[in-house]
């Protein structure tokens, strides 16, 4: 299987301040198609910087980054934008939906900037994407009419709409309560089961256990790379949670 993400000895140095900050110090990594990777690390470990590099939002100072066999480390701004548009999907901690814009229009957003598509095709693809995350019937709702979990699912639908090679999620459960977090992880697991490659940043150990592979960064270096031995299944965990809730009600009643 060809690696969809392949980075070799990648470095990122910020020299905007008085002292240059060496945020990523030589990380090499391969991610295969269909993987579900959690990128973990304490704050300041360089995981966000690495995520920005993986997401083509930033260019490495040194090293090579092959995304789907394209060397993206030296591309210029607009080419990077096109790569982000066609090969990557983003899910953010704060959802980052456009306010006062319907769920459907939010999902349509990436298609406004990519290859030319008819208005009808844009709409159909966006609706299909919303269906995948189970929100087709909320297409006309505005973000402020949706719960946090629903908003994050709209964001996932937006990330999926251009059929990306890799779905990148930056703390996707950071703003959600534990039960909703499990729901969102359920959506990710379902997508991963359909063959979508997912890389997510998280600092929550139990969330990382829903993934297949965990990478741990410390001081800009990769210090651990392991497969998750006892992977959690979101549907299973949800069922348990519901039972526990039901039990709590029974006892309180």
């Amino acid at each position: 299987m060809a690696a969809v993400v392949k980075i070799e000895e990648i470095h990122k140095i910020y020299d905007s301040g008085e002292v240059p900050v060496h945020a990523v110090r030589g990380v090499s990594l391969e991610i295969q198609r269909g993987e579900f990777v959690a990128l973990m690390g304490a704050s300041g470990s360089g995981k966000s910087t690495l995520m920005n590099l993986l997401g083509c939002l930033d260019r490495p100072t040194r090293g090579r980054y092959l995304l789907d066999d394209i060397d993206v480390s030296q591309l210029e701004k607009n080419q990077l934008a096109d790569i982000r548009n066609q090969k990557l999907g983003f899910v953010f901690q704060g959802f980052n939906l456009l306010s006062r814009t319907t769920a459907l229009e939010n999902v349509e957003l990436p298609m406004l900037y990519g290859a030319r598509r008819s208005a009808r095709e844009i709409r159909e693809r966006a609706l299909h994407s919303l269906e995948i995350v189970g929100l087709a019937e909320r297409a006309d709702h505005f973000p402020n009419q949706l719960s946090g979990g629903q908003q994050q699912r709209v964001a996932i639908a937006r990330a999926l709409v251009n059929s990306p090679e890799v779905l990148l999620a930056d703390e996707p459960t950071g703003n959600l309560d534990s039960k909703t977090s499990v729901e969102v992880m359920g959506v990710f697991q379902k997508l991963n089961d359909q063959g979508i490659t997912i890389v997510m940043v998280t600092h929550e150990l139990d969330i990382a256990r829903y993934c297949k592979r965990n990478l741990i960064l410390r001081d800009g270096r990769l210090v651990r790379d392991e497969l998750v031995p006892d992977r959690l299944v979101a549907t299973e965990e949800l069922r348990k949670l519901k039972e526990a809730e039901a039990a709590a009600k029974l006892t309180s009643a």
């Binding site: 607009n78 980052n96 957003l109 990436p110």
Partner: peptide
């Protein structure tokens, strides 16, 4: 600003 960030992240060029 955030909206602009989102647009840029999902593939808008500066020109757009």
């Amino acid at each position: 600003t955030r909206e602009i960030g989102i647009r840029l992240a999902v593939g808008a060029h500066g020109k757009d």
